[in-house]
């Protein structure tokens, strides 16, 4: 039985608004007709207050959330929380692919600078080139010379590395007078892992980026 036919079998059972709800839920990523049906019935049995809260948040998120005009991160105003915070160091800029990466780095509590969200990575096979990312905005931010360190924190996969290579080459002329330093996040062994299971690429990187132990 094909996917549409399977959907049809579920469709035939319900009518009206319940079916509308199942259809709408079924359009979400990774939710098939059965999952949609389960969520719909969960909502039907849930406390009306909880359902109202969910509905309100859904509407509010679409109405209020936008992208920070400066860094491209998700924000509830024209600028995001990090860009508005005066305690953040404006001389250090961390370039990431997605807003999700900002959250991941924030969780470390190690970084006190600001961010720049590219909106993806250069991937020619998917038709994504440098012009599709927020690279022009990054160059504008670097133009006034206030940034002294640019941290390239794109994913350590092929697309992320290629994006970092491209950015490093593009920004290089600005580093000529020593006013700007470009750094790349270290790659290496995961904490709590066994050396023998590490792949050659990661282990090679770990050797490349080894550091001296001060004892």
């Amino acid at each position: 039985m094909g996917r549409d036919a399977a959907r049809g079998a579920v469709l035939a059972v319900y009518e009206g608004v319940v079916q509308d709800l199942i259809d709408e839920l079924g359009r979400l990523p990774n939710i098939g007709p059965k999952s949609a049906q389960r969520i719909a019935f969960h909502l039907l049995q849930a406390d009306p207050v909880d359902v109202r809260r969910l509905a309100d948040v859904l509407v509010r998120v679409k109405e209020t959330v936008r992208f920070c005009e400066l860094c491209g991160n998700v924000a509830s105003a024209a600028r995001c929380r990090v860009c508005l915070d005066p305690r953040r160091d404006p001389t250090v800029l961390c370039v990431v692919e997605e807003s999700k990466d900002v959250v991941a780095i924030e969780r470390t509590r190690e970084f006190r600078g600001r961010y720049h969200v590219l909106g993806g990575a250069i991937s020619p096979i998917d038709g994504v080139g440098p012009d599709d990312l927020r690279i022009r905005e990054l160059m504008t931010r670097l133009a006034d010379g206030s940034v002294t360190e640019l941290i390239l924190a794109t994913d350590p996969n092929l697309e992320g590395e290629a994006t970092a290579t491209y950015l490093a080459r593009l920004v290089k002329p600005l580093t000529a007078d020593g006013a700007l330093r470009i750094t790349r996040l270290a790659s290496g062994l995961p904490v709590g892992g066994d050396l023998e299971y590490a792949d050659e690429v990661t282990l090679g990187r770990a050797f490349e980026g080894r550091r001296s132990l001060d004892v």
Binding site: I125, N157, L158, G193, D199, T202
Partner: peptide
């Protein structure tokens, strides 16, 4: 996942 034992080996090229 970062804990993957062969993720880095299965990159394009």
């Amino acid at each position: 996942r970062t804990s993957s034992k062969f993720g880095a080996r299965l990159e394009p090229f």
